[in-house]
C-alpha cells in the first residue's frame, strides 16, 4: 500500500512532466529537450529567491513566471526562426539539445555542480492506514495536480485553449483562419515551461536537486507521453501516473538499479506494440500525433 501511494505521488509529478512535454510536442512537433534545462534551473531560482528573503508564495510565483519567460525565450531564439525557415525536425531537435546544454551549464556555472536542498530539518509526517507520508511528498504532487487540472480546464473551456487544441490538430488551418500562430506557440512554450518548473520545484522540495537532473526528467516526460498516448492531452498525465507506480514497484520488488532499464524497456515496448498509447484512438503512428 505504501509503495503504491509513493508511486502514485511520484507518478503525478511524472504525469505533469508528460503533459508539459506533450503540450509542446503535440502542437509544434518540437522535441523539447530544452525543457530539461528549465526543469534544472527552476529550483535554483527558487532557492535564490527564498534566500533573498521573499516569502515562499511570492518566490514560487516568481519562479513560475521566470520559467515561462525562459520557455518563450527559447521559442523566440531557437524554434521560431527554424520554423520560419521550415527547418526539418532534426534541426529543431539539435537546436533544442544545444539550448538544453547552454541552460544547464549556465546553471552549473552560476550555482555550482553540488546537490542542494530547499528545506532543512526533518519533515512533518502523517500516518494513516499503515501509510506514512511526509509533508513534502504530498504537497508537491498536490500542487502539480492542481496546475495540471487548471491547464486542462483552460484547454477545455477558454478560447486560447480551443486555439491550442486546434493548433495540435492542424496548424496550417489555424493560420489560414487568421489566428496568430506565433502568439499561440509562445503560449505553448510558456505554459509548458511553467508546468515543468512546478514539477521541478515539487521534486526538489522533496529530495533535493543538482543541475543535471533535467535530462532524465524530460526523458521521463517523453516516456509518460508515449505510454499515455501522444494523441491527447490527458493521456500523458495518466501515463506518468502509471509509470510512477511501476517504477516504485520495480524498486520495491526488484532493485533500484534497474529502474531506468525498466522505464526505457517500457518505452520500447509501447513504441512497438501500442504506439498510439493507452488512450488515443486507433491510428497510425504518423497521423496519430
Amino acid at each position: 500500500m505504501q509503495i503504491l501511494i509513493n508511486g502514485l505521488l511520484q507518478g503525478v509529478l511524472l504525469g505533469a512532466l508528460g503533459v508539459a512535454f506533450s503540450l509542446v510536442y503535440r502542437t509544434t512537433k518540437v522535441f523539447h529537450i530544452a525543457l530539461g534545462g528549465i526543469y534544472a534551473a527552476a529550483p535554483f531560482v527558487l532557492l535564490t529567491a527564498m534566500q533573498s528573503g521573499a516569502p515562499l508564495i511570492l518566490s514560487a510565483l516568481f519562479v513560475i513566471l521566470a520559467a515561462a519567460g525562459l520557455g518563450v525565450l527559447i521559442e523566440e531564439t531557437v524554434h521560431w526562426p527554424f520554423e520560419r525557415k521550415r527547418s526539418p525536425a532534426a534541426v529543431h531537435l539539435i537546436g533544442s539539445l544545444g539550448a538544453y546544454l547552454v541552460l544547464v551549464q549556465i546553471v552549473a556555472v552560476v550555482w555550482g555542480n553540488e546537490t542542494r536542498v530547499l528545506r532543512e530539518g526533518i519533515d512533518k509526517t502523517w500516518s494513516a492506514f499503515g501509510v506514512t507520508l511526509s509533508q513534502a511528498q504530498v504537497l508537491g504532487p498536490a500542487m502539480a495536480a492542481t496546475a495540471v487540472v487548471i491547464l486542462f480546464g483552460l484547454l477545455a473551456r477558454a478560447e486560447r485553449g480551443l486555439e491550442l487544441r486546434a493548433l495540435a490538430d492542424n496548424p496550417v488551418l489555424v493560420a489560414l483562419l487568421g489566428r496568430n500562430v506565433r502568439a499561440l506557440r509562445r503560449w505553448v512554450f510558456g505554459l509548458s515551461a511553467a508546468l515543468a518548473a512546478i514539477a521541478a520545484t515539487a521534486q526538489a522540495w522533496d529530495v533535493g536537486f543538482d543541475p543535471h537532473v533535467g535530462l532524465k526528467a524530460v526523458l521521463h516526460g517523453m516516456v509518460s507521453m508515449i505510454i499515455g498516448g501522444a494523441g491527447s492531452f490527458v493521456g500523458p498525465f495518466v501515463g506518468g501516473i502509471l509509470l510512477g507506480v511501476l517504477r516504485a514497484e520495480v524498486v520495491w520488488f526488484g532493485s533500484a538499479r534497474w529502474e531506468e532499464a525498466v522505464t526505457f524497456t517500457l518505452l520500447g515496448a509501447f513504441l512497438f506494440f501500442r504506439p498510439q498509447g493507452i488512450f488515443a484512438r486507433r491510428a497510425r503512428l504518423e497521423e496519430g500525433v
Binding site: 531557437v78 527554424f82 537546436g95 544545444g98 538544453y100 544547464v104 551549464q105 556555472v109 555550482g112 555542480n113
Partner: peptide
C-alpha cells in the same frame, strides 16, 4: 578549474544552436 568543464559544454551548446541557425 571548477567551472572549466561547464564552460566547455556551454560553448558546445552555443555552437550547436548557432550552427543550426
Amino acid at each position: 578549474d571548477a567551472v572549466a568543464a561547464n564552460v566547455r559544454l556551454l560553448a558546445y551548446g552555443l555552437l550547436l544552436v548557432l550552427m543550426m541557425h
